[in-house]
Design a protein around this nucleic acid. Structure first.
Lengths: 162, 162
DNA sequence: CGATTTATGTCAACAATACTGACGTATATG
DNA sequence: CATATACGTCAGTATTGTTGACATAAATCG
């Protein structure tokens, strides 16, 4: 294929690679969330509910403020979703033993069921992608994703001995 | 390292790996979009405007229906954002030469400027992550991301000879 | 102990983005 | 000429996010 600017190939392909990465992120994220969104919509919930259920499931006993940090939203935004999930018995709150101001969050059995329903789908998608790409590719994927996120988020993944 | 279920170690770490992947996607996407979102907010725009500007910039002369396909939203949703961008001269529409019903979309100079402002930021972030991770990791990243998205989206990336 | 800070919740108003459904217009095509 | 397609728009609604203000209970500091 013709190259009008000799020597410009590297810069062009670099720009193309970066644009491609932007699109990889867009399409992968879009499709990754689409199925779970559809399941949630049937239950009258949205993506925000999923995120809360997911992270409470992942970190049982998490405080409200820690959850706010992870989600990166305001407490008013979380409140609407969280109180709905508590009201409908997907999540229960336990008063902190050490600090009585804290409301430690846990999934109920009903919450765990919904969590399973939602993430089984997503885990299967990831598992298939991992399987198809191979171990070395997975390691590369992890490196690049860690590099894309902010330092604060990256620290969450620094598991000692890993 | 106690293992109550002999042979269960693999399954546990597999589950952990899959959960980690979910979170890599969440945090990388969240942080990747955050900066551009902030720039857009100052101009009275949102993420939807960015997506439209990005894909029109990427595919000059794209039709409205092709753009709808890419974005995966309804025409009513696009209409609000697109007509705003046309009204404020970020995008111009040209009647299709072959098919007069089509409104082929192009960025204006003003639109190109905003596109540059937004994606320069994002390209730099990707470039840094790519640099830090290395060539092999980038190839792995691409493989996994392609595996995560739906078949339809994956076809967009099938560039012959690549 | 009293003052202040912290953790959490809640009310109100607002904006962006998405949806469904219905209808209209211009152009292409059978 | 009839129908299908490309696009636009009006109306109504839901979810998710924002600010700002205010309230309560518990911890902590002086």
């Amino acid at each position: 294929m013709s190259d009008p600017k000799p020597g410009g190939n590297l810069a062009v392909s670099r720009d193309e690679d970066l644009r491609q990465a932007i699109e990889l992120l867009f399409f992968a994220y879009r499709d990754f969330t689409a199925r779970a969104d559809a399941i949630l919509a049937k239950q009258g919930f949205g993506r925000a509910h999923h995120r809360v259920i997911y992270f409470v499931g992942r970190h049982p006993g998490i405080t409200v403020s820690a959850l706010l940090d992870i989600l990166g939203i305001t407490k008013q935004s979380l409140s609407r979703v969280l109180s709905q999930l508590v009201r409908e018995s997907y999540i229960m709150q336990k008063k902190g033993a050490e600090d009585g101001r804290q409301r430690l969050l846990h999934l109920t059995e009903k919450g765990r069921e919904l969590e399973r329903l939602l993430t089984t789908e997503q885990r299967a998608r990831i598992a298939a992608a991992y399987r198809a790409a191979g171990t070395a590719a997975v390691e590369g994927f992890r490196k690049v994703m860690l590099g894309i996120m902010d330092d604060d988020a990256r620290r969450r993944f620094k598991i000692p001995g890993r």
